[in-house]
């Protein structure tokens, strides 16, 4: 399970060249906002050539394509159909743009819907069910707050509804929930706190906009070893009791039942999948 998704501007050859040796679990090559309008085509050419020639090792590769209404959209999707690319990040994901994307994207490719408009938020139930290619939801806090005409704050109350709604839909439809980038790249403590906060809500991963954020994200997502150990004890004890026909029991003064067991099991699975 990917913990971090790192944006790399597709116009930056140096960053593309070193992307595979960075810590990030997944790389998102950005053809959209990270690339100036007059570099869109050259960035795509560079990305295409890089995909053809470089070995990206074990990285999961995504391409953030341009908006479905832009002139670049079709060629971007064709570029993202490259065999080394796992899928696309669809900006301004709404019913219409997702439909457009599904028409041209290779059926083997994954789609991460970037929810960054008010309409996108209220269309979440449909977006989650339109195609099995949709594997994850990614929150775009900056564009969303712009769409709502409100100021973006570090506290994040202006995106609170969207953040909670997104994670709930992701859980309901078994999709990855990926949180919005933390834009203050020097504030590692703030990032750490935000990752812990969204992880407590159920988010699986966080977008990074600077490679130095990746390590902080991974550290913050690490499960407390004591909690991990406790979860292992719970799972082991529950499964042992179950064979004896006991569904509820006391472990070190704490009542253990089915929901507690499932939560512990989930924590173990998540941590084991996350550990690279």
């Amino acid at each position: 399970m990917n913990r971090s998704y790192l944006f790399i501007p597709a116009s930056n050859a140096g960053m593309i060249l070193s992307s595979m040796v960075l810590d990030a679990d997944a790389i998102i090559f950005d053809l959209e906002d990270g690339v100036a309008l007059n570099q869109k085509i050259s960035a795509r050419t560079l990305l295409q050539h890089s995909l053809d020639t470089l070995d990206f090792l074990d990285k999961t590769l995504y391409v953030r394509i341009n908006n479905a209404s832009s002139d670049f959209f079709l060629e971007d999707v064709i570029c993202a159909n490259h065999p080394k690319v796992h899928g696309v990040v669809l900006p301004k994901a709404e019913i219409k743009s997702l439909e457009a994307c599904l028409k041209v994207l290779d059926p083997s490719k994954t789609i991460l819907c970037l929810i960054e408009s008010a309409l996108g938020v209220i269309q979440l139930p449909q977006l989650c069910q339109m195609s099995s290619q949709v594997k994850g939801l990614l929150l775009g806090g900056e564009d969303l707050s712009a769409d709502c005409g409100v100021e973006r704050t570090q506290a994040g109350h202006e995106i609170d509804y969207a953040r909670k709604s997104l994670v709930m839909h992701a859980k309901a439809f078994k999709l990855m929930a990926i949180d919005t980038p933390f834009v203050n790249i020097e504030d590692h403590q703030g990032l750490r706190e935000e990752v812990k906060y969204v992880a407590s809500m159920g988010y699986d991963a966080k977008v990074a906009i600077n490679p130095r954020q990746v390590h902080v994200i991974h550290e913050a997502l690490k499960v407390d070893p004591l909690k991990f150990k406790e979860a292992k004890m719970i799972v082991e004890a529950f499964e042992k009791h179950r064979t004896q026909g006991i569904g509820v029991f006391n472990l070190n003064g704490k009542m253990i039942d089915e929901p507690v067991y499932l939560k512990a099991k989930h924590l173990i699975e998540k941590e084991e999948r996350r550990t690279p």
Binding site: S18, V21, D23, V214, H215
Partner: peptide, 11 residues
């Protein structure tokens, strides 16, 4: 170094 590649090497 602020270079993430360099930081990775250090780790």
């Amino acid at each position: 170094t602020k270079d993430p590649v360099g930081l990775n090497i250090a780790r």
